[in-house]
Design a protein around this nucleic acid. Structure first.
Lengths: 215, 215
DNA sequence: CATGCTTGGATAGTGGCACTCCCCAACGGG
DNA sequence: CCCGTTGGGGAGTGCCACTATCCAAGCATG
């Protein structure tokens, strides 16, 4: 199909598609002549994924490019590809080690990961995952504002996420090829985030209504 | 204290503080002379909250202003204030009703909220909560990409969020005054989001490692 | 009281990001 | 042959979160 058809079928303007082509989020179509190119269903599928990551998942174009590059890096195995894709997702400001609250955050995070028996914190031979820094920063910020969150407060959240991860991976394993699995993992990681956050806000509203009354 | 001291104590540049004052995120200091103003601990506290919401919570300045305005709206009771504060948080693009996938999303969301026995969906007399639209959009996007998520898939996530909401509200009720409670609720809603998301990513990495091996 | 630094307020400018507009040369159907 | 359409590419736009500059009014010191 031509660019114009890719545009109407995806609902993305040709200008934006050309922008994504330039930015490397979409690979070029098969060149038919010097001035025309042919796109296929793969392009349409990829374009829909890109839009979903950017618009619904809210991730920046540059991060999306890295995530997608990791998806199809033939040099990596399945677990590594998944790791580097998630690694490329935005993860907020790094912990500020000049701030004393960061020390609290780091200790709490380490104790929590230890309690949960996960091993993605910093070690001698591997750098900490970006999500680890994100966790430290968030705990530090809460403590700076005077809302301490202890390991005991956090452990149930960790356990809940552990159960979700199991069902996420179950879902991923329904797909046969590693390519499909890695793409599914990325899509589920990013697109379940708004699902979780909206459910949390709805649950809070519901619980607040139950406790404090009214609507 | 003077603006300069507020700046050093908060770690925020005077230029940025002046910007927040202009944008109404921080109320003006007590005017001492025509060209000098005095700030207090309340300003420092508010400034730290603003920075946390914007930098760690990632919410835009305009949304932060609305959230903070809701916090101190004396005309509302506790539940309403909490509701309108959370209402003002960013919630992504609204569902696109021209897209057939939105219909799927809406039906799934309605069935889910019904199953969970929550009542924050759209009704005859009240508009849907923004988080409802966020949920519909996310489910619709997943289904458009070919990742259907059924009510059965989502219910456990909803239940998990229900339990989190209970412990969130328990934490909020530790505070005595309604002002403190509402501020705590907003801070916990926003700042636990990165905690949850980072724990989820770490849990996924851990589970992926367990299933697929390696590190 | 003169001088020179600081303070707070206002206005304009900066850099990054995600597009979006416009032009051009090359097709290609009638 | 000719005129509308296509793809490529660079420049421009609008928004956002600051940030730099300017100015008049303090205050501090000699």
């Amino acid at each position: 199909m031509r660019l114009a058809e890719l545009s109407t079928r995806s609902g993305v303007s040709t200008a934006t598609i050309k922008y994504y082509l330039r930015e490397g989020l979409l690979h070029a179509g098969r060149r038919v002549t010097a001035t025309q190119a042919e796109y296929d269903e793969g392009h349409l599928r990829r374009l829909r994924l890109v839009r979903a990551l950017i618009q619904v998942g809210g991730i920046p174009v540059a991060s999306a490019r890295e995530v997608l590059a990791a998806l199809q890096d033939g040099d990596l195995d399945r677990n590594q590809r998944l790791g580097s894709a998630v690694w490329a997702l935005p993860h907020g400001p790094a912990p500020d080690d000049d701030d004393p609250a960061t020390e609290v955050g780091r200790r709490t995070a380490d104790a929590l990961l230890d309690r949960l028996d996960w091993d993605y914190g910093p070690t001698a031979d591997a750098p900490a995952a970006p999500a680890y820094g994100m966790l430290v920063t968030a705990i530090a910020t809460l403590s700076r504002l005077g809302y301490p969150c202890s390991v005991e407060d956090l452990e149930p959240y960790g356990r809940a996420m552990e159960r979700m991860a199991v069902s996420d991976l179950d879902l991923v394993e329904r797909y046969r090829t590693p390519e499909e699995q890695v793409e599914a993992a990325v899509a589920l990681t990013v697109l379940y985030e708004p699902v979780l956050l909206s459910l949390r806000r709805l649950a809070q509203a519901e619980e607040s209504r139950r406790r404090f009354g009214g609507r």
